[in-house]
Structure formats: structure tokens, C-alpha cells
Amino acid sequence: MTPPNRRITIKDLAARLAVSTATVSNAFNRPDQLSPALRDRILGEARAVGYLGPDARGRSLRTGRSRIIAVVLADSLTYSLNDAVASEFLAGVAEVLDAHGHTLLLLPSRGGLRLESASMADGFIVYGLLPDPEMHQQLPSQRPLMSVDFDLAGQASVHIDNHAACLTIARHALRHRPSRPAIINLRSTLEPCNGRVIDQPLLSESQTITRVRLTGFHEALSEHHFVPDEVPMWNIEENTFDVCAPVIAEILDLPDDERPDLLLCMSDRIALTVLTLAEQRGLRIPEDLRITGFDGIAEGQYRAPRLTTVRQDSVEKGRVAASMILGLTPRESRLLKTELIVGETAP
């Protein structure tokens, strides 16, 4: 019997269950190593006697590993969890980590990294372009590091084929030749700009995926005999309704002979905001205005008219990144395919 005032240990629990301490440890940290019935029996007994699991600090000191993987977020924690694409990506990462007994640590980079938290992680997935391009150098150099949706020199990365995706959807949209096509970018300017892009310098393709998307749009426009530099562009600084709405209202409130009749949008959130505000103004979709998005989020497919968009599998992107950082698959750069979804906003 364990004395009532002493904290129960892994050895105590193993003795009660007549199993090894390694088996108890696996129940908490490597569930794939046990049968579901055995793991349930161990966890049930642990709850009954008040055992909370192996001491992570002690295990880290013994093994040099914490079994924690950090995802370094380019945006705030609130934004990342509310954003459909980012939350799906994190779900994919968490799925793989759960299956292999690892914990997910989220590190938002806006305002600086919490280096005391970062020091605990066994590896790092950097998701999206950081506010400071050199910020990743603050992370422990001896730990594995990889990037998602942008490139870090000398490191593996996971991307979707943004250029091919935007070329494909723009070619589709331009089959019904518009009179006044336009583009709504997402964070594509060197300096913050929430509005019409006139002379603002753009980020390079190595700095942001949205610049790669713009290249795809421009290639399709050239094929259809438009001069890309003469096609008007607007830029959105944050992929939320509240930030998108003022810019889109400015576009939709242009005189009839200036208002675009095709908007190529760099995200579904932008496209859905266009759709909502256009309907409020009595514009007919797609007769008066054709709209395309990018991402394939569920909201765009559940409402009517259904959004024409590019679907990227953000959950699979998370699975691939997590598998690579854990060493389950080779740590080498991957380019994932996308799917054109033709809806009613640009049939």
C-alpha cells in the first residue's frame, strides 16, 4: 500500500497493475505501442489513484527529449485558431503527434518568441512567414527545424503548388472573357497596405506564397491578352471579414463602368466577404460579378451561391509536416497538389 501522504509514482502504479514501468509510460506517451484495452485499464487505474503521469521534467533530463514539438506561428494565437486554414493545419499536426505520444506547443511570433518555452521543444515547425525573417535563428540550432508555406535556407519545407493552382483557376475564370478583371491580394506589399495598390513595392516570391499566387494570375491574364500591370489590384492586410470589408466596399462602390466584373481573390475569406457585400448591394452573381477564392474552406461550399475556388488539403499539410519533424518520413521538401472546385460564383 502507498502511504496516504506520499505522491504515487510510476513504480507504484506498475506494481498495482502487475505490469512494467515501461508499459505504464507507454500508456501515457506512446499509446500506439499498447492495445486499446490495456491502455484503458492503465489510465483508468491511474485516475482512480490520482497518478497524473510520468514526470516530464525528469524524463527530459534522463533522455534529453521532451516529446514536445513546437509550431511557430507567424500570426497571433487568436488569429491562428480562428483562421480556418491555419486551424486545419494545426489539426493535422496534432493528429500525428497524438498518435506518437508527443505534445503540441504553439508559439506565436508576433511581439517576439518566448524562448524559455521554445527551449523545451524537440523540434520546430515554422508556419508562415515570420514578422522578422531572422527570428528563426533564435531557436535552438541543435533541434530539427522545417518550414511550411515559405522557405528557410537549408531546411526542408512543405508547400502547395500555389503557382499552378492560381494559373488553373484564373484560366477557368477568364474563359468567359471579362471586361474589367481585378485582383485582391493578401499581404503582398512590402509595406502594410489595406487598399488599392498603386506604386507600392511588392514582396518577392521567396518571401510570401501570395506573391507566387499573383504570378499565376498574371500568367493566365497574359494568355488571355490582358496586360497584367494594367489589371487593378487591391491588397488585404489580414484575412478577416472586418479587415477585408472596407477595402471590398471601396471596390464594389465604384461607378458601374469602373467596378470589376471579375475578382480573383487570394483567399476564400476575401471571396466570401466580396460575396456578402455584393449581395447586400443587389449585384447578381455571377451575371454582374464573377468571384473566385482560394483555400476550399467548408463555409464557401455550404452556402449558396457556392464558391469557385482552389482546395488545398490543409489537414494533410499538417500531417506531412509532423511526420517529417518526427523523422517518420524523410525530411525533404514536399509540394502538395490542389483541386479546382467549380461553383456558382464563376461557373
Rank of each mutant, 00 (worst) to 15 (best):
M1Y: 09
M1I: 09
T2Y: 03
R7Y: 09
I8A: 06
K11E: 03
D12I: 01
A14G: 11
T21G: 02
T21Y: 03
A22T: 15
S25I: 05
N26I: 00
A27C: 06
D40E: 07
R41T: 14
G44W: 06
R47D: 07
Y51W: 11
Y51S: 01
R59L: 14
L61K: 13
R65K: 05
R65Q: 06
R67L: 00
I68D: 07
V71G: 12
L73Q: 09
L73K: 05
A74Q: 00
D75K: 13
L77D: 04
S80Q: 05
N82L: 07
E88K: 03
A94K: 13
A94P: 01
V96S: 03
L97Y: 11
G101A: 00
R110Q: 11
M120A: 09
G123W: 05
D132E: 09
P133T: 13
Q138Y: 04
L139A: 04
Q142H: 12
R143N: 09
L145M: 11
L145N: 08
D149S: 13
D151K: 14
G154E: 10
I160H: 15
A164D: 13
A165E: 00
H176I: 12
S188W: 05
P192L: 14
C193K: 08
N194M: 02
N194R: 06
Q200D: 11
E205D: 15
T208N: 12
T210G: 07
E219R: 15
S222Q: 13
F226T: 00
D229M: 05
E230M: 11
N235H: 09
I236T: 10
I236G: 12
E237S: 09
E237R: 05
T240Q: 14
V243P: 03
P246G: 07
P246A: 02
E250S: 11
D257F: 10
C265M: 06
A271W: 11
V274H: 04
T276W: 04
L277S: 02
E279C: 09
R290V: 05
G293A: 05
F294Y: 15
E299V: 09
G300T: 08
G300S: 04
Q301P: 06
Y302Q: 04
Y302E: 03
R303K: 14
A304I: 10
L307Q: 07
R311P: 06
D313M: 03
G318H: 01
G318L: 01
S323V: 04
M324H: 09
I325A: 11
L328E: 02
T329W: 00
T329K: 03
E332R: 15
R334Q: 15
V342Y: 08
V342M: 12
P347K: 06
